[in-house]
Simulated assay, not measured.
Amino acid sequence: MTCVFESARTAVYAPLTHHLYTQVIFQLTVRCLSGTEIADDDAVVALLKRQYDVLAETTPTTVLLPWLPTPAMVRKLRATKVVYDTVVAAVDARERGGCARDDTLQLLLDAGDDRATIIGFIMGLLVAGARATGTTASWLVVYLSAYPEWRVEAKEEILRLLATHATESATSPLQARLASIPLAAWEADTPVFDALIRETLRIAQPHTAIRKNLGPDVLVDGKLVPAGAHVVYPFSDVHLDEALYPSPWVFDPTRPARQGKMEYLGFGGGNTVCLGNRLAKMMIKLSTGMFLLAFESSVVDATGIALAEAPVPDWNDAVHARPTRPCYLEYERTKVIL
C-alpha cells in the first residue's frame, strides 16, 4: 500500500507500505493510552513507533529458540528497554512536576496503581496501535479506494453524522466538527462503518490465537490437549472458510453477520475479546472519516492504471498483512477545508 502527498492527482507514486496510517493510528493510541509527556513530543512518538516495529520482527529462530541470544533477539531486548525507559521517564516527570493532566497516566496515578502496573499497562496497550489497528485502518482505506460505491456510502454516513449530531458550526474546522459528535452517535449511528470494519478485519487481519492449557487435560473437538500444551488456532480456519464466507477473498460488507459459535473472530472470541475494541473502532472511524471528506482516492498500479481487482492481503505476512502484489493509492484533495 503506498500513498502520495499531493494536493492534486499526480502520476508520482511514493512507496509507503501503509506507513501513513500506522503512524496516524499509533499517534492516536499514544494520545489515548499514555501521557501528554509522550504524546506531545513528536520525536518521542516516532522513537516509540520504531521500537515497536523492531519488537514485531519475527524470525524462525526467535520462534523456535526464544532463549538463544540471536541478533534479532538482542534488538528486541534493546527496543524493549528503550520503550521501558521512555515510559518511566514520563511517569517520573509527572510525579516530579506535580501537575495533574487529563490523560490515562493521570487516571492510573490517581487510582493508586503501583509503578509496575502503570508502566506495564502503557507498554502493553501501545502494541495494538502499533500493529493491528493501524493495519486495519490502512486496508479499509485501500478497500474504500478500490470500491467507489462503498466509499460513497461511507462518506454519506459521515456527512449525516455531521448534519445530525455535530454541535460545531459548519464554518468550524473539520476536525472540530467531527470531535463535537457524541461518542454514542459514533458507536450507534454508523452501521455502514461497522460493516466495513467487520469485513476488513475478516480479510486483512491474519491473526493466530495461542493458548496454553494450564491443566487439567482437556478434550477439544475430540482431540486431547494435555496440561502444559499449547493450542494454536489460525483465524483463517474461520475467516477464509468458503462454507462460512463464499468467495472469501472478495470484500463484501453486505455479508450477514455470522452468529454461530466462533464463526467470526475479528476482535477475538469466547472469554478472550479485545478490551480495546471500542477505542480501535472509534479511531478507525474518525481517521477514515477525515480521509474520505478530505480526499478522493483510487488504487492503481505503478504506471497509474486503475487495478481491475482490489489487492489481496498476504496472510503469510502476519505482522503487516501487506498486499501480495505491490499497489499504490492515488488521491487528490477535495474542497473540504480541514
Rank of each mutant, 00 (worst) to 15 (best):
W186A: 13
W186C: 11
W186D: 10
E187W: 13
E187I: 13
A188L: 14
D189N: 11
D189I: 07
D189C: 11
D189K: 14
T190G: 10
T190N: 12
P191G: 12
V192T: 14
V192Y: 04
F193L: 14
F193H: 14
D194I: 03
D194H: 08
D194P: 03
D194R: 12
A195R: 15
L196R: 07
L196T: 06
L196M: 05
E199K: 02
E199A: 03
L201Y: 08
I203E: 00
I203S: 06
A204M: 01
A204W: 02
Q205S: 15
Q205E: 06
P206M: 05
P206T: 02
P206N: 09
T208S: 09
T208N: 09
T208A: 11
T208P: 02
T208W: 03
A209C: 08
A209T: 11
I210K: 12
I210H: 15
I210A: 13
I210S: 13
R211N: 00
R211I: 00
R211D: 01
K212G: 04
N213A: 04
N213C: 07
G215Q: 00
G215D: 03
D217A: 09
D217I: 01
V218K: 04
V218H: 05
V218Q: 11
L219I: 10
L219K: 09
V220H: 04
V220W: 01
V220P: 05
V220M: 02
D221V: 02
D221N: 10
G222I: 00
K223E: 08
K223D: 11
P226F: 05
P226M: 02
P226T: 05
P226H: 09
G228V: 00
G228A: 00
G228C: 01
A229N: 11
A229L: 00
H230Y: 15
H230K: 11
V231P: 06
V232H: 11
V232Q: 15
Y233N: 10
P234M: 09
P234W: 07
F235R: 10
S236R: 15
D237V: 14
D237K: 15
V238E: 12
V238L: 07
V238K: 14
V238Q: 14
V238N: 09
V238I: 15
D241G: 07
D241N: 15
D241H: 05
E242D: 12
E242L: 08
A243I: 01
A243Y: 03
A243G: 15
A243V: 09
L244E: 03
Y245V: 02
Y245N: 01
Y245C: 02
Y245F: 14
Y245S: 07
P246Q: 04
P248N: 10
P248W: 06
P248F: 10
W249F: 15
V250Q: 15
V250M: 07
